[in-house]
Amino acid sequence: MTATYVYGLVAAGTRLPDGLTGLGPTGEVRTVEHDRLAAIVGDVPEDRPLGTRADLLAHEAVVDTVARETTVLPMRFPAVIDDTGLVDELMAPHQDQFLAVLAELEGAVQYTLRARYEQEVLLREVLEDDEEIRELDAQLRELPQDAGYNERIRLGELIVAALDERSAVDADDIEARLQPYAQRVSRSPAPQPDEVITAAFLVPRDQTAAFEEAVEKLGADTRDWLRLRLLGPLAPYDFVAGS
């Protein structure tokens, strides 16, 4: 049995872009077609487990390079299958389902936007707006670094709550500004109190310039208090069903 790595799925007849390098020892990336579907596949290293930095980057580079030109269903890293099962177990039994999702995503790419507060600016604002926080902060400034442990936790708790309250509103605001350019939006939970939003936008290819411009405009309007990071165009990672 030989293991095959599957990067993603595209419509049959898709020509892969030149210069793709896979994560296997040969680096080869090719398609295997079945009926109206094609799998983007390559070989798998046999002498080591998958999961190095290079593996992750190779997977992403292959999928997103294809996505620049063609709609692709990205597989979750790492997707390895016995090559005898590629058609019989993966493609043939799920073809209708895959084709339906491909059709749904046809002509669109994903952008992922992350916004985070300029922490200092926001903390200053929180202090200005909240008397309890201001008083607690003033008290703690008088104490030595190692004193007032519980009060410090209390202060942090109040600040985090204040930031959460702000980011809930600001996240909606950001989404509302960009939503007109997107077919769908998928938000991820913000992992840190000073992160405002992480959201994926599914944008029609003919709208990408307008979308990017809208993000630039947002960045210009919020430059004093937000830091924006935009990834894309990408494969529609956040818009394919988990299973």
Partner: peptide, 25 residues
């Protein structure tokens, strides 16, 4: 005012976020 990344930019942080728990399973 916007940082750009993705599409083979080689940022592990970005890639981890994108591909490790997203995509078709």
């Amino acid at each position: 005012n916007v940082e750009r990344g993705g599409s083979g930019s080689g940022s592990l942080a970005d890639v981890v976020e994108l591909i490790l728990d997203k995509g078709l399973v």
